[in-house]
Design a protein around this nucleic acid. Sequence first.
DNA 1: TTTTGAGTTGTTCGA
DNA 2: GTCGAACAACTCAAA
Length: 451
Amino acid sequence: MKSIAIFWFRRDLRLHDNAGLYHALKGALPVLPVFIFDTNILDDLPDRKDARVEFIHQALGTLKNELEQQGSTLAVRHGKPEEIWPQLLRDFPVGAVYTNRDYEPYALQRDAAVQSILSAQNIPFHTFKDHVIFEKDEVLKDNGTPYTVFTPYSRKWLAKLGARQFTPKSGAEAGQSRSFYLTSYPAEKYAGHFLKTTPVRMPGLAEIGFEPAGIPFPPAAVARGLIRNYGQTRDFPAIDGTSRLGVHFRFGTISIREKARHAQQLSPVFLNELIWRDFYSQILAHFPKVVTEPFKPQYAHIPWRTAPGEFQRWCEGQTGYPIVDAGMRQLNATGYMHNRVRMITASFLTKHLLLDWRLGEAYFAQKLLDFDLASNNGGWQWAAGCGTDAAPYFRIFNPAEQARKFDPESRYVRYWVPELGTAAYPKPIVEHAFARQRCLDTFKKALGGAV
DNA sequence: TTTTGAGTTGTTCGA
DNA sequence: GTCGAACAACTCAAA
C-alpha cells in the first residue's frame, strides 16, 4: 500500500498561509488532514455550552468543505491523542506526520508523547513555527538569556524582523520589499497534493458532548481603517476600535504573518500588540511556573483576602462600580470584554478587593472566547503587579477616573448597566479611597518583609 | 565589573 | 482645567 502523510491541525485551522501544511503538501506523500477533539482538554471544561468548542467545530466544518472541494476530506477524531494516534497508524499507511508547534505546557507534553509513539514506528514527526512570528529562542538578549522586560524585547523583535528583507520578483507583491519572517506559505498552490478520498463524516457538536453557546463570533476580516485608527480608538470601549481578532489568532483561522504585514503598513500600535503576544508566549515557554506562581517570587507573600461573596459579586457585575460591572456583564453575555476594561476589572479584583489574581484569571479563562493561556496569565500578573512589568504596585486604577477618561459619555456603561441611577443598582462593594489605602498598606508590608 | 538609563496602559495633590 | 511632582525602590538591559 502506498503510504501517506498526515497533517495534524490543532490551533491553525486554515488552509491559507499555513507553514506546516505547506511543507506537508510540498513533501512526496499525499496529505490527509486530521483533527482530534482532545478529551484531555474537553473533559476539564466546566461548561457544556462552551463557545470555544463551538467555534472550533464551526471552523472545522469550513475546512472540511474546502478540502472536499479539492477532492479530499478532513478526518475528525474524538479522544485522547495518545490513544487516537496508534489507531490512526493502524488505519492508514502513515509515512510522515506534519504539524505546527504549540507552546503551552499541556501541548508540549502531548506532542512529546505523540513523538515517542511515532518514533517507535520510525515515522518522522515534522513540526513548524506558525503560531507566532518569533519563538522563544529567536529573540534573546545578547548574552543568550530570555528577555523579561517588554520594551527591550520589542526593540530586538523589531530589529530582527527588519534584518532580513526580501523583494518578491513576481506575484501580487512583486517589487514590494518586506521581512523574510513574514513570508506567507501558499499551501493553496499545492492543493493537488491532498490525498484523494471520499468525504468522511465529522461528529456533530452534540456527539462530542457540547451544545451551542449562543454567542456570535467576530468576523475574521477586519477593516483596514480599523487597524489604521487602532492607536486612537482602541482605548474607548463604546467605540470599540479593537480588532476582535484574538479568537482567530488563538485558533489560527487567520494568519499571524498576514496580520503582522498589515500592521506594519497601517499601525505601529497594532503591531506592538502582536509583539506582546509573542512576548507572553516566550515568557510562558521559558518560565512555565507562571501558570501557578507569580513571576516575581516576592509576590507569593501577598495575603490575598478570602471573600467568596465579593468574588461572586465581581463575577456577576454587581460591585456597584459601573465600569467594572459593565465589563463583567459584557464578558458574561458575549464571551468578550474590551481590552481597556479587562485592565480595569482585573485591577479592581486584585487591588480594590485584594482577591487572588488566579481567581480572576480562571474566570476569564472560562468565559473569554479569545482565551489564550500565555496572554491571559501575563495580563493578570501585570494587573496584580506580580508580572514582568517593572511598574510600581501603587499604580492602582481608579474606576471612576478610568470611566471619565475612556467612557466620557457613559455610553458603554449605560448599555451594560441600564439600571444605573435607580434603586436597583447596588451600592459600591467597597469605598475607593479606603480600598486604595488598604491595598497600598498590604502590598508595602508584604513586599517590604519579603525582599 | 560597573555604571547608567529606563521601565504598556496610573492617581493624587497642590500650584 | 492643566501641569508637574510625588508616589519608592528595584531590577533589567546594555554600554
